[in-house]
């Protein structure tokens, strides 16, 4: 068939395409139907169930879930100092991990986005992303082997005559988390830095500002959304994780409490109530970020 002739099937296609063009809502529905359905049912649905379950409680005698509204779980969380300590510990480590990652990510992403020639930039980015190809558990076990008592680090220290071990501790948890989430902080920061036009830096320099001043007054305000995006990853992922804590730590975090209550104690309502804690903390975190104007320049 010569090109340009319109066959019957083309006519059908043209009809369909014209129909969709006239009914834009339908087109939008066809485009977003599946992901929106997934999002509403699976994501918001579970979140709602979580929320509802948090207000049920476990009958201490029968061990059965009582499906009646009660604040019992929240009272336990508020009054038991163990839970308060666990929440504060998780929060503290999450903040430390977030800060560490921001500090580590900035020079990397600045170099990749603004200074490196194309080849070096790709090398840096690949190096940052490469660990994501390895299994998460494998990477945590690697850190366990490095940090544990009798591990690689201890052995290295002994070689130079120092007897010191990080062992299974919060420091080990902090190091491992910082390592795990670094790519998630580097990438948005890199994207934000790359979006800052070079002429803005030149203009600042042209107007008399040295490097540090340009960073404070021009670069930093413009990449705050990228930093916040990265910090949300590092912060929220730390709040929710329990495997790292199990493998390299010696204390309990929010995630472990939830895990234990779902599994060992089969107190699902309490687990749900405790799961709302990181949700609440994240909400406060986002609220603060929003109030600081972090999303204005998005």
């Amino acid at each position: 068939m010569a090109t340009g002739t319109v066959g019957p099937s083309d006519g059908m296609r043209a009809h369909l395409s014209a129909f969709l063009f006239r009914h834009r809502l339908l087109k939008l529905a066809a485009l977003l139907g599946a992901p929106a359905g997934w999002f509403v049912v699976i994501y918001l649905g579970t979140l709602f169930l979580l929320f509802a379950t948090a207000f049920w409680h476990l009958d201490a005698f029968t061990g059965l879930v009582v499906k009646r509204f009660s604040l019992a779980n929240f009272q336990t969380i508020a009054h038991d100092p163990v839970y308060r300590t666990i929440i504060l510990r998780t929060l503290g480590i999450a903040l430390a991990v977030t800060l560490t990652d921001i500090v580590l990510a900035f020079p990397l992403s600045y170099y990749a986005a603004r200074q490196a020639p194309a080849r070096a930039r790709n090398a840096v980015l690949i190096a940052v992303v490469l660990p994501l190809w390895a299994n998460y558990l494998v990477r945590i076990f690697a850190w366990r082997l490095i940090l544990s008592p009798g591990g690689l680090l201890v052995w290295l220290f002994e070689k130079i005559g120092v007897h010191w071990s990080i062992g299974y501790s919060n420091v080990a948890v902090w190091i491992t988390f910082s390592y795990l989430w670094l790519p998630y902080v580097v990438l948005p920061m890199y994207a934000a830095l790359e979006r800052v036009p070079g002429s803005l830096l030149e203009a600042s320099s042209d107007l008399g500002a040295r490097g540090w001043k340009t960073f404070r007054s021009v670069v930093f305000p413009l990449i705050v959304p990228g930093i916040v995006a990265g910090s949300i990853f590092a912060f929220s992922l730390t709040l929710g994780d329990y495997i790292v804590v199990q493998l390299v730590g010696n204390s309990r975090f929010i995630g472990n409490v939830i895990y234990d209550n779902v599994g060992v104690a089969s107190n699902v309502p309490f687990a749900a109530a405790f799961a709302l804690m990181p949700v609440a903390i994240m909400s406060i975190y986002l609220f603060i970020a929003w109030r600081l104007g972090a999303f204005e320049a998005l």
């Binding site: 002429s199 803005l200 203009a203 320099s205 042209d206 107007l207 500002a209």
Partner: peptide
Amino acid sequence: LAPYEREVNTVFQDYALFPH
């Protein structure tokens, strides 16, 4: 000398105004 050490100023092609 660096740009900030010179008594010249530039009007950029893309204006380079600080958006924030």
